[in-house]
Design a protein around this nucleic acid. Structure first.
Lengths: 209, 209, 209, 209
DNA sequence: AATGAATGAGCTTTCATTCAT
DNA sequence: AATGAATGAAAGCTCATTCAT
């Protein structure tokens, strides 16, 4: 019925998809509105009808990406028996998801110019959310006697950083290949670092080339 | 005696100093040549007399910063008896140095837009250098029986990420305060994560508010 | 009826017209985009919306001018009975057209800095086109026995130069006045130079002050 | 005795020589003072000690070149018996000299942006001088009955243009090769164009590959 | 005579945003 | 909802010229 121009999606969605591509390739400030609308098959006016500014548009994009990502992570954690099983599973889920969606990783992890302006902090939230998630499970693990008491805020932050860096290297150099091959090493290191025995949490793992 | 004003230094240095300030606040692409020269008390022509481009100027700045930083880290490592003592000391040195030079941390750690362009990779080397440094000591530690065999490349990368993230949080939120209070926790976590007993390497540490 | 002000035409055309004025006065490299848009009543952004660069804009301008000029010349040649009548007519047409459009002459004939860069060769084609045109007729004239065999490439080039120089003097000094008064002299000289009798080709000529 | 830095010439001369090279390659406005002094082995201050401005420096250069050129032409004319022999000889001398000094031709003939500013007219004088020279001989030839009365100003101008164009083509395309092969054709065409019989003036000519 | 750091107006080009249709 | 021409501030960079030494 409708004269679906480019694909049969809304202009709003097509802009967000095009923006993902362009930001993944060029970065936030390298991504021009012009290029985005060209890829989206939209017009300048259309862009500014749907979004008040380039900035808000990226916020919407990051928001959407974060939500999908966190949903996957939380889904993976849901089926696990203990707090540490859940943290282990979350690391796996994160690695697996980014490995499967390179562009999401590029958009979410490659743009850090977190200066004064609120503008730039927009790429940080996912890291904080993931950190909060680990922190919660860590507290539960300590309460359950799975790990000794420790600075959970700091430790969870550290592990977000570790995961981030490994993915970053993969984005920039392609190593390790596949990315998921790093997962068991990271999980074991994590568990040891918090004073827990890795053995019980890793038995089920297997990765494919 | 006198409170050395700007005019005491060479134009070259004043530009680099002003650039540090501006990039720390606004990031690489947010830092305009105009603003830098205004802060430096120089002119456009003078800027381009000393540097062929904004890009090369930042390269010179990052180079200079990296060298000073690595010198401090290597100096701190030099006095240590074993490989793991050296890694522990390097983490301490890094944290201490960044804590004392907030702007250096901002310039070096807050600019990651590694998208294709050579331009942006300019801020990565320090991380790679630090990673290589840890990796070397880790290999020595394994050879010396201080730690079990493991993927040293991955592990060193992870720890660079962990340290980076902790400093990043400190830059953006001010936590933990002081930054150096996180050092012993990180050192212990690191040592446990590689399968070493933290006890022998941490006795001498004390931090001041 | 109304004295069509600037606003009657498209921005694209107004820019091209303004550029004609400015380049006629200041030359290609002396013509600033700023000055052009001011005269055109347009904005910087508008200029670069319509043209990808100053260079491409000048190419479009020269192209348009050349086409109009060659059309007039070819039209004048069309009604002529023999090759030499056509050459004679083409010289007349060229002189008449330039005399009536001083600025076109200034833009097309006053910019010669043919140094390597493709940029500068942009102003040469008209001369080459006109030369090719004469050459063709010359060959026909020789084939028809109107003139003895000779180096047509060289001869046509020479005559383009001769015409160019006469117009150039007129542009710079105002002599001869009117420019068209030089036409019969040039035509006769041309015909004699190629070994033809001027008489049959010049009878109909008359010029007005 | 003296510490002859670059060559054993004066700075003044070295600047002028370097300017010849740079202007020949890049044209007047493409020739930067910086590049000239680098080639000359001089300094900015030195340049402005010897010349009040880039413009005046080019004037001095053109002046010097023109003088040398005209001297050669006049020398070639000196040994000739009649006015038309002299014109014929002057064309030969001009072609020969330019063929032997490509850079001089490039500087003198390739820069024509003769607009409002006095600046740009600086490359015109040689053409005018040469034109005046031909004109004088033409008048003498007419007075001597070697040629019929005609518009000597216009005719001499035309022939300067013709010669200019032929050399220009040679500069830009390399044709004809050698340049001097065009000389007899031009001389004959010239003589015929003014109503004189070429035969008596061309017998002695021979050119070498 | 000579040096080279410094100047600043000027250049072309980019880009998020606006607005009449 | 959508269009695309128009805007103008700001960007990085160039260059003839000046001046203290």
């Amino acid at each position: 019925m409708s004269k679906a121009t480019a694909r049969d999606t809304t202009t709003y969605d097509r802009i967000l998809e095009a923006a993902t591509d362009v930001i993944a390739q060029q970065g936030y400030s390298g991504a021009g509105v012009q290029e985005i609308i060209e890829k989206a098959g939209a017009s300048k006016g259309s862009f500014y009808f749907h979004f008040p500014s380039k900035e808000k548009m990226v916020e919407a994009l990051v928001q959407r990406m974060s939500e999908k990502l966190m949903a996957k992570v939380e889904e993976a954690m849901a089926g696990q028996p203990t707090p540490l099983h859940r943290v282990t599973a979350s690391i796996d889920a994160l690695m697996t998801t980014f490995a499967g969606q390179r562009k999401v990783a590029q958009v979410l992890l490659l743009n850090i110019i977190g200066h004064g302006r609120a503008t730039d902090r927009k790429f940080l939230p996912i890291r904080q959310q993931f950190s909060a998630l680990i922190q919660k499970e860590l507290e539960a693990a300590i309460a359950a006697g799975q790990a000794p008491p420790q600075d959970v805020v700091l430790v969870s932050q550290m592990w977000v950083g570790a995961v981030h860096e490994v993915i970053l290297r993969w984005l920039l150099t392609g190593q390790p290949s596949p990315l998921s091959s790093a997962t068991p090493v990271m999980q074991a290191a994590f568990l040891r670092s918090i004073g827990a025995d890795p053995a019980p949490y890793l038995t089920s793992h297997r990765h494919k080339a």
